[in-house]
Structures are given as C-alpha cells and as structure tokens.
Amino acid sequence: MKRFLIVLVSIVLLTSCYIHDGQEDVSDPIPVGPSVKGDNLAMGNPSNASANVVNADNYLMVKDQYVLSYNDSKHTANWVSWHLSTAWIGPVDRQDNFRSDVTLPSSWVAVKEYSYSGSGFDRGHICPSADRTTSISYNSATFLMTNMMPQAPENNQKPWADFENYCRYLAKKGYELYIVAGPAGVGGAGRYGYKEKIGDEGVVVPKYTWKVVIALLNGENDVARVDAKTRTIAIWIPNDQTASSKSWYNYRVSIDDIESQTGFDFFSNLPDEVEKVIEAKVDNTPI
C-alpha cells in the first residue's frame, strides 16, 4: 500500500507539472548543454533603440528569446539580437504558428501571418526557429511577424539557411555565439520579380540581408572574454534569386563593412581597442 501511494503521488505531481487549467504547460524544461543562457543583448544595442512609442522606427522590444529594434515605417525589424548555445537547443518541433505580434503598441499596424502570401517572398526568420527548441513557447516566439523579413526563396532557403546551420554546428562543438541580423536597403527580387513593398501593410522588401556573429568557447563573463583573437563572422547577401549561386562563406565581409552600410554600431559593449580589431577583419576560417 505504501509503495502504491508513493507511485500515485508521483503521477499526480508529474501530471500537475504539465497540465494547468486544462492546458499543456509550455514553460522551459531543463536546458541541454550549458546551464546559463547568455543575455541576448550582452554585446550592445546596435542602434540605441528604446522602448518609447515616440521612437517608432527604432523601437526596442525585449523578449525572453531575443531582442529586436522594430521599425514601424518598414514593418520589419531593423535588427534582431540573440545568444546561441546548446542551452537553447532541445527536442521541440517547429511550431509553424506565424502570427501578428500583439505586444506592438496598439496604434501601430501589425503585420498579419498572411501578409506575405502570393508575394514571391518567404516569411524569413531573423532569429531562426531551430535556435529556440527547448520549449514550445520558446519556438513559438520565433514565429511572430516582428521576427520576419521578406526574403527571396533562393536567399532564405540556401545560403541564409546554410549559415544558420553552421552557427548551430559551432554551438554543438562547444561554442556560444552572439548574433545580430536583419534587413538592409529597399527592393529585392523574389519568385515573381522585383518588389519594394508587399502586403496590405506595405512591408518593405530589403535589398540585402546581413548577419554578424561573435563565437566564443563556452564560459562565463562573456563580454570580458572577447579579445582581439576572438572569431567574428559577418555575411552580406543580396536579397534576390541569384543568392544561391554562392555558398554563404563566399558572402563573408567585415563587420565594419556592414556597419558602414547600416549605420549600426555592433558589439559596442566591448572595449574600443578590441572592437576595432575584430570588426575590421574578414573571417577566412576554412569551412
């Protein structure tokens, strides 16, 4: 009888962890790999975005899974910043629940999940779905339309996706990465040709997509550990159907190059002397 009661109590407790008010609990499980998830904005705020509705074209949105600067005129993020290690990677499947971001100020027009339909452009993740798979809620958060940009299929599904996979490969090899990515310019060519805006909201189609990365071996005090020898990777890819003619590593540039094109200041929390060195070099590590 005593053993039966212990088993019964255990089942009840286990069930209560997963069911609350008749719904599945989608909170984070114990993460796999490093126990600490890095601060998604640890390396700096590239545009000095702020959570002030007056600052509508550089509006800071802080989520548990990533941080972004939203541009209400373009209806896309200016940039999204996130940390990647195996602490963020788990067993959860891709949710595919694209939807409007209801946390935008109520007076702003929110992009709908179908706004890209028929445009010839993919709903391209900025922070990838596969970078956030420790819980249903974490993966689901990557499908908010504030984390999307219109991407030519031959950009999104080829070099862009390949570089995402490479970043996760580094994470599984014992690295933690600090990543910032986003759109640049106006006008891209998708499946049905050149467009500058799509959808009823007039979502601006970027001319380029870009990403900058700092890669560190797993550890603590990450900002303090970055030095002049730390690996950085930056890519700048045309947002058109020619993008797949090259592999992602053929699109490598310096972080300085991307700063000059976007006006952003990446990794500004680093000491100036370190930032100057690592942002000037073009990664040439064999892939």
Rank of each mutant, 00 (worst) to 15 (best):
M1Q: 15
R3W: 13
F4N: 12
I6K: 11
V9Y: 07
V9S: 11
V9I: 14
S16L: 06
D25S: 09
P29Y: 13
V36C: 02
K37W: 10
N48C: 11
A51F: 06
V54E: 13
N55W: 01
N55A: 03
D57N: 15
D57A: 04
Y59C: 07
L60N: 04
L60V: 04
K63V: 12
Y66K: 02
V67I: 12
S69W: 05
N71E: 06
K74Y: 07
T76W: 05
W79T: 03
S81E: 09
L84S: 04
A87R: 07
G90C: 08
P91G: 05
R94S: 15
D96V: 05
V102H: 14
T103H: 11
V109T: 10
K112N: 14
K112A: 13
Y114C: 04
Y116N: 02
S119V: 11
C127V: 10
S135Q: 11
M148I: 10
P150Y: 02
P150Q: 01
A152L: 05
N156K: 00
P159M: 01
N165V: 03
A171Y: 10
K172P: 15
V180Q: 08
P183R: 00
A184K: 04
G185C: 05
G188M: 00
G188S: 05
K195I: 04
E196N: 10
G202L: 03
Y208H: 06
K211H: 14
L216H: 05
N218K: 07
V226G: 08
T230W: 12
I235E: 01
W236F: 08
T242E: 06
S244K: 11
S244V: 02
S245R: 12
S245P: 06
W248I: 00
Y249E: 06
Y251E: 00
V253R: 06
V253G: 08
D257M: 07
V274N: 00
E275N: 15
E275P: 15
K276D: 14
I278D: 00
N284H: 15
T285C: 07
